[in-house]
Simulated assay, not measured.
Amino acid sequence: MSKINLCLAFTVTFLVGVIVGLSANFGWGLPLGTSLTLLIAIFGFGVAIYQSYATRTHNRLLIKPHLIFKSSFANTILEGFYTYTLKVKNVGLGPAVILKYSISLGDELELDGHTIFDALVRDANKHFNANGAAHCVAGFLYPEHALEKGEEKILFEVSFPKEKLSFMQGRELAKQFVKSIDAKIAYSCHYGNHFYASKKIIEPNILLISSEAE
């Protein structure tokens, strides 16, 4: 039982005890009919308070956001390239208002909206031996930005040349690259409740999208 319910039960019990005492003529001398009327009023008051509390709790649940990270690896997005994508998606019931977003990539700690792209391009070309041929997209979540229900946003996307790499070899390279990512998101709902999402990818669960058999 929640603290609200305990307080409500205690208050109603106390008031009932007081009314019973009054009805028993413990110095106050209220007639029985008046006492019963007051009892009914007190119970109605308690029910009204609980109903208000339950409605507010229900409304909070109706707008509760929930952010998750989504990874995918594909060979169909860009001709001649494998593509790894990391997204964040709001699978909750209401908007997620961003409070703080932090992401690190390899040795680059606490990247921001101005440094994330340069760090991604540098590390991706180095890791995938792309010699400058890697195609990169970087996104950033700024404070007070909101992700609506069902909305998703690309945090970053890397496309690197297939060359002589098989699909599974490319996937293994992507898995190793993903291990260097550490992302954290602090967000809230419109009621002001705070939530957190974090992803330190040790062994990533990557969705595979392939148009060819390996």
Rank of each mutant, 00 (worst) to 15 (best):
I4R: 10
H127A: 07
L208T: 12
R56E: 15
L147W: 00
S2W: 11
Y142P: 03
G94R: 02
L155V: 04
Q169N: 08
A124G: 03
S71N: 11
I201P: 13
I77V: 15
S211Q: 11
L6P: 11
I63L: 02
S104F: 05
T85E: 07
H114M: 15
G150E: 00
V47F: 07
R56L: 13
A186K: 07
H194L: 13
P95A: 06
N25G: 08
A133M: 03
Y84Q: 11
I185E: 03
H190I: 12
V16F: 08
C7Y: 13
D107E: 15
A119Q: 12
H114G: 14
N205T: 10
C7F: 15
L15H: 05
I4T: 10
Y53W: 06
S23Q: 08
C136H: 02
K64F: 10
D118S: 13
L32Y: 12
Q51W: 14
L155K: 02
I202A: 15
L67Y: 00
M1T: 10
K3V: 06
L155C: 01
S198C: 14
E163F: 04
E148L: 11
A138Q: 07
L78H: 13
T13L: 12
I116R: 13
C136G: 02
N193E: 12
I181P: 03
T34N: 12
L93R: 15
I42S: 13
A41N: 06
G44S: 08
E148G: 14
R60P: 04
I185S: 03
F45Y: 08
G106L: 08
S188C: 00
F195K: 07
C136W: 02
G92N: 09
T85P: 01
